[in-house]
């Protein structure tokens, strides 16, 4: 019994460290899921079946799932922002060519302002 307790505590400690030191969230989720499972096992060994059941469902299913969905969501936001920034850049380039004078100065900070780039969404070219 004592061997099992010490072993599971060591595994919990190691996997907890692994969760923190995995820097990319996509890979971290896998570690977090394993960490949750090991916590559930720890509760089970320490005679807390109610808590183990709770942790099992939360740690292995609910939490990783929500993190994955949040990652997917931020990634789609990233794609949309990239596309809008590119449109903005294209528009400024066309504008500069049409204006004639000083085409090179038309977009001094086109790489700079992502926050303002959202205002005129325009129509995505790929939409057709």
């Amino acid at each position: 019994m004592i061997v099992m307790q010490i072993a599971i505590l060591a595994i919990v400690a190691a996997s907890g460290g692994a969760v923190v030191f995995t820097r990319r969230p996509g890979e971290q989720v896998v570690g977090a899921s394993f960490f949750g499972l090991m916590l559930a096992l720890m509760f089970f060994i320490f005679q807390a079946p109610d808590v183990a059941l709770s942790q099992l469902v939360i740690g292995a299913v609910a939490l990783p799932l929500m993190v994955l969905l949040a990652i997917a969501k931020t990634r789609s936001t990233q794609m949309q922002q990239d596309r809008e920034r590119e449109q903005q850049r294209n528009k400024e380039r066309e504008h500069g060519r049409g204006g004639g004078t000083g085409g090179n100065f038309a977009s001094p900070d086109d790489a700079g302002a992502p926050a303002d780039a959202r205002q005129p969404p325009g129509r995505p070219r790929e939409a057709r």
């Binding site: 109610d50 059941l53 709770s54 469902v57 939360i58």
Partner: peptide, 17 residues
């Protein structure tokens, strides 16, 4: 037995998923 509203609720919520 071990279980209850908190645990069973999360299990039930995974079914539509």
């Amino acid at each position: 037995t071990p279980g209850g509203g908190f645990q069973g609720g999360v299990i039930l919520a995974t079914a539509p998923l």
